[in-house]
Nucleic acid binder design. Sequence first.
DNA 1: TTATTTGCAAATCGTTTGCACGACT
DNA 2: AGTCGTGCAAACGATTTGCAAATAA
Lengths: 150, 150
Amino acid sequence: MPDLDAGMLVEDLRRAGMRVTTPRRVICEVIAASHDEHLTATEVHARAEAMADRGIDVSTVYRTIEALESVGRLHHVHLGHGPAVLHLSDHADHHHLVCEQCGRAQDIPLEEVADLVSHLEERYDFVAAGVHFALVGRCVGHDAVPGNSP
Amino acid sequence: MPDLDAGMLVEDLRRAGMRVTTPRRVICEVIAASHDEHLTATEVHARAEAMADRGIDVSTVYRTIEALESVGRLHHVHLGHGPAVLHLSDHADHHHLVCEQCGRAQDIPLEEVADLVSHLEERYDFVAAGVHFALVGRCVGHDAVPGNSP
DNA sequence: TTATTTGCAAATCGTTTGCACGACT
DNA sequence: AGTCGTGCAAACGATTTGCAAATAA
């Protein structure tokens, strides 16, 4: 099941004239299997190394991510502080509520913000990128008066 | 005119039991004078050094930013890729449209998103932090079909 | 005086790059 | 065969930290 998607990613690379190598295949596998998780490059790297017999370099992961992005299959977003997280374009059916305390990102469906986004695009001559929307705050568990941090 | 705000920042630090030093005074000066610009820590550092007679270390800038944040006077947000940008809390009357091409951030007034935000807060048990809202995309000049980057 | 801050230098984290070797097509 | 991708190591920018000397309270 995850294999199907990985194949599509790989195909897209090939179609774009790029080469299909073992590291790339593995990385596509990992990314395809992640579905709507919010993996970071480092996490992809870890899983790829775990999955492959041979070691894979982080730079290769970044370069493959770049390749997949150039083909329009993938996006990376900087939610809140930490590292960037990846999203498959076809899973880009949500936005994020990011907790600045625990860093967790809760997904919110597209429709919730669709009206606002199209309004803003029209009003400000702007083209929103798929998943690149984040509202930062605190989830209830971490609710606190701003400025009263421990 | 910028002096007034700087004084308030400094006062808040003092009130919180923190010490008021020359570097801090200068940094507050710079931040207060920046109003609704989106300064990065590095830019604050540059301006502070330019303004002071003595050199000021970046780490001092970061620590002062942290101090001002702990007092609730300041926030820093990661808009798009690059470094974090600062916002005075009382200038937190806007959100951002961030162009992923040129990195520029256009302000959008609070009211534009107020309804959505309160809706999301209610629906998802979430407390939004003032300015921490960013919609990433491309401004018209940089409009392009995703995946067709040069 | 005495706890805080400072500056400096070094460490960290995420990401990028140069380069010679190895592998797709 | 020739180009493109790889690993490695080193460079990078942003941010953080340890520590001894300087300073506000």
